[in-house]
Design a binder for these strands. Structure first.
Length: 193
DNA sequence: CCAAAGATGTTCT
DNA sequence: GAACATCTTTGGT
């Protein structure tokens, strides 16, 4: 399996996020592999972003966001669900991209199920808080790998979901024709393939 | 179809 | 004590 990616994860989250659409996240599940093609993501701007967990500085939960890019940040949402991010930007920037929805892929890369919402997506991949900090890019990735998109996709943008602050910031990115369940305006197409 | 309620870890006030 | 980057179940229209 290819373990390299052409994605530049050291760029700001709002630049990385649309480039993650169509990327495939692979997670080892024993001898098997879980594969999800990302169809909806959201950017969080760390210290620059009042809606980010990292806005007020590092805590035990979000400390991994302040490290180098290319690692997972997995947190517990509403005490119930796990939600996964990919850390982006240079060390100390604490920006990250939340994985909101995807398509489960079979071993031949064909879509077999829609994974709507960050909690369901993360649960399908089997990721929990113990995976927070795991590398997903580069030769040292061990359990999870992020594979760059193999084809251009149609990207749409809206405000983010479930926030009480900065909801209007247009940092939610969706492959045209897809979206997670839940509230929010319809995406507006911004970039043809 | 849509709205409301409930579960409950981490962080903040 | 309250808010929160969520989802499921239940009950209404």
């Amino acid at each position: 399996m290819a373990r390299l990616t052409t994605l530049d994860l050291a760029a700001p989250a709002e630049d990385v996020a649309p480039r993650l659409l169509g990327a495939v996240l692979v997670v080892a599940d024993g001898a098997a592999r879980r594969r999800v093609r990302l169809v909806e993501v959201e950017a969080y701007g760390g210290r620059r972003d009042p809606a980010s967990h990292a806005y007020r500085g590092p805590t035990p939960r979000c400390a991994v966001m302040f490290g180098p890019p290319g690692r997972l940040y997995v947190y517990r949402s509403y005490g119930v669900h796990w939600c996964a991010n990919v850390v982006t930007g240079p060390s100390g920037d604490a920006s990250a991209v939340l994985l909101r929805a995807g398509e489960a892929l079979d071993t031949r890369g064909r879509p077999v199920a829609a994974l709507r919402g960050p909690g369901l997506l993360t649960r399908y991949l089997g990721l929990t808080g113990s995976d927070s900090g795991a590398l997903v890019a580069g030769a040292r990735a061990r359990r999870a790998w992020l594979l760059a998109p193999t084809a251009p996709v149609d990207v749409a943008v809206t405000g983010r979901v479930g926030l009480t602050r900065e909801q209007e910031r247009p940092w939610r990115f969706v492959i045209a024709g897809h979206r997670a369940a839940g509230p929010g305006p319809r995406p507006v197409r911004v970039a043809p393939a």
